[in-house]
């Protein structure tokens, strides 16, 4: 009997309370979630349901009030701030709604940034960066600065930055929010493709047609998981077919 592979992301009984006393708000309540390698999970829910908090906790940008977050088997609560930073640059890739590319760097430099933080020289990083840019279809933009790109191009570069290196966990916080529907679909296709190649992808989105690309969709309300569906269930439930 073969041993089950270690989940890429695992949340065990995670709660997060913002504020204190009378102002205390439960952002996430006793949440359990497991993402295996190659799994694409979409998170949906109304505003204030705890979607972004979930992503912050998964990336080690925020700490849970209670519970445990494990990334590739490592307990984030046991790591120092520097340890969590190292984990983010090696294991976790972030994609933001507003792309958040560093305006002072070119596309290639933005993608190489996590590698350089890890001690790679720009020279050594170059071929790896070219490959990733090629994978997301923006190789010809390597020397452009973010301000000279369209929204879709910028987001592809942001995804390339999230993918570069050995990272296997991709956290995407409404990456299609600032894009038109065609470009948005292209971006989700890129994420789907990465999942198919072995990365675990956690996508926060408001759009059911994008969620339909996921292996399963987690619905949140008031910090709690209220439902979980497979892709066909979601399409049926929402009356939208994945194209």
């Amino acid at each position: 009997m073969s041993q089950a592979p270690t989940p890429v992301l695992e949340l065990r009984g995670v709660s997060r309370v913002h504020g204190r006393d009378a102002q205390a708000v439960d952002a996430l309540v006793d949440m359990d979630l497991v993402l295996a390698a190659g799994e694409f999970v979409a998170v949906m829910g109304p505003s204030g349901s705890g979607k972004s908090t979930l992503l912050h906790l998964a990336g080690g940008l925020d700490a849970p009030t209670s519970g445990t977050v494990l990334v590739e088997g490592q307990d984030l609560g046991a790591l120092s701030a520097t340890g969590r930073a190292v984990l983010r640059r090696r294991s976790v890739g972030y994609v933001f709604q507003d792309f958040n590319l560093l305006p002072g760097l070119t596309a290639a430099e933005n993608v190489a940034f996590p590698l350089e933080l890890d001690g790679w020289s720009a020279h050594k990083a170059r071929p790896v960066v070219r490959t990733v840019l090629s994978e997301v279809g923006v190789e010809d933009l390597a020397d452009r600065r973010p301000e000279d790109m369209s929204g879709g191009q910028a987001q592809r570069v942001a995804i390339a930055r999230a993918l570069v290196g050995p990272r296997r966990l991709l956290l995407a916080d409404e990456p299609t929010g600032a894009l038109d529907s065609v470009t948005g679909t292209e971006i989700v296709q890129v994420l789907r493709s990465r999942a198919d190649h072995g990365a675990a992808v956690l996508l926060v989105t408001h759009e059911p047609r994008f969620a339909a690309w996921a292996d399963r969709t987690v619905f949140l309300r008031d910090g709690r998981v209220v439902d979980t569906t497979g892709p066909s269930d979601a399409a049926e439930l929402l009356g939208t077919a994945a194209s």
Binding site: Y94, P114, R161
Partner: peptide, 12 residues
């Protein structure tokens, strides 16, 4: 930009 750098793995 600091938020971005922090998120993609820049240490303090």
């Amino acid at each position: 930009d600091m938020v971005t750098m922090h998120a993609v793995g820049a240490s303090g």
